[in-house]
Design a protein around this nucleic acid. Structure first.
Lengths: 202, 202
DNA sequence: TTAATTTGGAAACGGTCGTTCCCCAATAGA
DNA sequence: TCTATTGGGGAACGACCGTTTCCAAATTAA
């Protein structure tokens, strides 16, 4: 009986963790963008030989898409955890905005957002990239809308606030923060945008 | 006496207009981004041989920076003209937001903004690009702030609206619109963001 | 005319890109 | 123990990249 639920497949076992390697690739792709990130840079960062890289992934685009998916999975998990601590709808919207603002200054800000980078560099010419960007944007927009409706229900956000329209605006603000973050503004400037945006929920 | 104020320099005269060529380059750089735009694509779009291109510009980056400067010059002129027709501070803010929203849907939206593209793809690694992005962002932010103060003075915007903080938020909204525009939303969705943002000035 | 200068354009260059190949190591199953 | 299968890693490959070179053409100045 194997200790794992699945039996090990034939052939030599992989000596590295795919997800650990992807975490390194995410950094390279985020900082450099898709086209400027060379296989040479990627293999160095991931600690792999070119041959091994191409046994784990079909081609450069596959490495990128796997990195994107990993990035989204990790970021979504962190955001969900952050939102779980929210008191009411309004507090959760504020937490979500701050989540983006915190990622949009200093070193992380300069590193940049893989979703925004993909939208700018890849979405127009690559259908698979575009679909992922669309899904990511739609998820964020829908989440904002849900939180606003939650605020309507618990009384923390006035019902005069239009959920769909406000969600679209807040999505626009978060994506904009990520762009501004590339030029490395201070934490205070990023957070002041959040404070001002929250006025929309008064 | 020459009909022009300046006499013609020695050597064979250039057979194309630099600015016309740059207008073609702007399209290529906007759609493809800096790294994905090859010299081959650029020379085809600009209608020049590689040799001629390199006599007019030092290298690829020089073509890009000249395109960026031309882009900013043209866009700033169009925006200034649009703002000149505004009735008061509030109307001018609305016009400026609509100016970005109109550029952020359909074909133009998918083509993208050269400032946002440069921020994402180049600003982190290239000082000259970063300086241009910074200047562009600072100009927009300062313009928003000026218009809000104008609204304070003419009574179209309540003085409870903080000029600096609101200007930062509106800058974030416009940059976000440009990102969202890459996935080609409808005109209505882009303009609804403007309507909602204008609520901040109530 | 002639010399100097600059552009137009095609061909060529070295370098790097993404990718594949090949050989050896490590594992499962028979 | 033998075979099949897969991964590790480095060397090699063709393609395309940005750039330079070269020569003919067009212009100014002498």
């Amino acid at each position: 009986m194997d200790i794992n639920a699945t039996t090990r497949p034939p052939g030599r076992p992989r000596e590295f963790e795919i997800e650990e390697a992807l975490d390194k690739a995410i950094v390279v792709f985020s900082e450099r963008g898709y086209h400027a990130a060379s296989i040479s840079e990627l293999k160095d960062a991931m600690g792999l030989a070119a041959g091994s890289l191409y046994k784990a992934f079909k081609d450069k685009k596959a490495i990128f898409l796997a990195s994107f998916d990993r990035y989204k999975q990790v970021r979504n998990a962190v955001l969900d955890e952050e939102l779980a601590g929210g008191e009411n709808g309004r507090d959760k919207v504020s937490r979500m905005l701050r989540f983006y603002a915190e990622a949009s200054h200093g070193e992380n800000g300069r590193r940049g957002c893989l979703v925004v980078g993909t939208a700018i560099e890849l979405a127009v010419y690559d259908a698979e990239a575009a679909e992922r960007v669309d899904r990511s944007m739609a998820r964020s927009e829908a989440l904002f809308e849900t939180l606003i409706r939650e605020g309507h229900a618990d009384g923390s956000i006035p019902t005069t606030t239009d959920p769909a329209a406000t969600a679209r605006l807040l999505l626009s603000v978060t994506q904009g923060l990520r762009v501004l973050g590339k030029t490395g503004p201070s934490r205070e400037r990023a957070l002041s945008v959040v404070d001002t945006a929250m006025r929309l929920l008064d």
